[in-house]
Every structure is written in structure tokens, then in C-alpha cells.
């Protein structure tokens, strides 16, 4: 049970430090808010165009949020010289990955659930009754983004130009997530039946499963030294 305790404690530690200083979530949130403003200035948004471009806007905003938030997920450990303690933990290193991953998923989901009503408010969307579908899509896409993002964050945190390297590594690999999430979101916006866009959600789920497992296995090598 040591394994699961480690996962729980690392996720708990991240949440606790977040509750105490509110650094991560607030920076993600305000950054995404600025992105929303920039988008509303950049496009002339009449109701028909909103329907067209809204899924893209939402996922670009969330993608930037992920870059801001996930890129820093190992920074505190490096600054406080805690990586060595992680290496010394007598559990499979994948447990550390899972702990961090769960923390990141929670942060992202919190930010997304705060942001989404703001999207509805600013762009006059009429979708609040479809909130469960949106939550499902946000959930599976966020799990995929966090699975890759946590791994690449651990990779790039020890690199010299980490602010540049993190998006350069993450974004090309996350292309399937963006395609799947945008298409599923578009389906919900258009009021399609669930069966019409469920294959995108299946794609996202497959992506999540593959990359959580692969990252869990491969994380062993990152903390080797």
C-alpha cells in the first residue's frame, strides 16, 4: 500500500501548497482570461461565427493554460532541491508520476470549470444545460494533456531553455487531443446526438490510456539521476 500512499501524498502536497499560495491556479486562470479577451478583439464575433470558431477558441485557451500550468509542475521541487528525495523514495518512480499527474488534472479541471461559465457569459453561448457533456470532454482531454504534460514537464524542468522547450515538445504530440477535443466540443455546440461525436471521445480515451501507461513506465528513467 506504500505505492498508493505515495500517490496520495504527492497529490495532497500539491493541492495543499496550491491552497496556501494559490500561485498555479491563479496564474493559469488569469492567463486564460486574457486569451479570451484577445480572441474577442481579434475576431468579429457575430452569433454565427461564434458557433463556428468557439470550440477552437476554447481549446486554444485551455491549451495555453496547460502550457502555463503543467510546465511548472516540477519547478517547485527543483527550486527546493526535492528531486533527490523523489529519487530516494522506496517505491516505483511511476507513483511520483501518478501523484503529480493527479494533481495536475485536478488543477486543470478546476480552472476549466471556472473558465467555462465565463466563456458562456462573454460570448452569449446557450449551452449551460449541456454541462455534463462538456465536463466529460474536458475530463478526457485534460487527462490526455496532463499525462503528456507532466512527463514533458519532468523532462524539460532540468533543461536550460525550459520555457521554450516545453511547448515545442508538448504541442506537436498533443495534436490528437486538440483535434479530438475541438471536434467533440463542436458536436456538442451543434446539438448533435452523442453517437455523432462519441468516436472523438473514444479517440481521446485511447490516447489517455496509452500515454498514462507509457508515461508511468518510462518515468522510471527520468528520475534515475
Amino acid at each position: 500500500m506504500h505505492f498508493f500512499n505515495t500517490i496520495r501524498w504527492i497529490a495532497w502536497k500539491d493541492l495543499l501548497s496550491e491552497v496556501r499560495n494559490r500561485e498555479n491556479i491563479s496564474s493559469m486562470f488569469f492567463f486564460a482570461l486574457i486569451v479570451i479577451f484577445i480572441f474577442s478583439f481579434s475576431f468579429s464575433l457575430d452569433p454565427r461565427t461564434v458557433q463556428e470558431v468557439m470550440p477552437g477558441i476554447i481549446w486554444v485557451a485551455f491549451g495555453f493554460t496547460a502550457i502555463i500550468g503543467l510546465g511548472k509542475s516540477f519547478l517547485a521541487e527543483v527550486h527546493n532541491d526535492c528531486m533527490e528525495y523523489f529519487q530516494m523514495l522506496p517505491v516505483p518512480k511511476g507513483a511520483i508520476y501518478l501523484g503529480k499527474f493527479i494533481g495536475n488534472v485536478l488543477f486543470m479541471l478546476i480552472v476549466e470549470t471556472i473558465l467555462f461559465p465565463l466563456f458562456v457569459l462573454f460570448f452569449n453561448l446557450d449551452v449551460l444545460e449541456k454541462f455534463p457533456q462538456f465536463l466529460l470532454i474536458f475530463g478526457v482531454a485534460t487527462v490526455g494533456l496532463s499525462a503528456l504534460g507532466t512527463l514533458f514537464s519532468a523532462l524539460t524542468v532540468q533543461v536550460r531553455a525550459r520555457e521554450v522547450m516545453f511547448p515545442i515538445l508538448l504541442l506537436p504530440m498533443a495534436v490528437p487531443i486538440f483535434i479530438g477535443a475541438v471536434e467533440a466540443t463542436r458536436g456538442v455546440f451543434n446539438g448533435d446526438a452523442f453517437a455523432l461525436y462519441s468516436h472523438w471521445i473514444q479517440l481521446l480515451v485511447v490516447f489517455d490510456v496509452i500515454f498514462v501507461i507509457v508515461s508511468f513506465w518510462i518515468f522510471e528513467f527520468i528520475l534515475d539521476f
Binding site: L151, L155, V159, V175, I179, W200, L203, I222, D224
Partner: peptide, 26 residues
């Protein structure tokens, strides 16, 4: 470290490639 991290990246990228292909096709 360079060798290990690069190897990890290459493995992840290789696994990602067919998923990218199918998602773009759909």
C-alpha cells in the same frame, strides 16, 4: 541525461505517430 531524455522523447513520439495519423484522417 541528454541520452536518456532524448530516448524517452523518441519513444513517446514514435507511439504518438499512428494516433496523429488516424486522428487527422478522421
Amino acid at each position: 541525461k541528454e541520452a536518456t531524455f532524448a530516448a524517452i522523447l523518441a519513444i513517446i513520439g514514435f507511439i504518438d505517430l499512428p494516433i496523429v495519423y488516424f486522428s487527422v484522417e478522421w
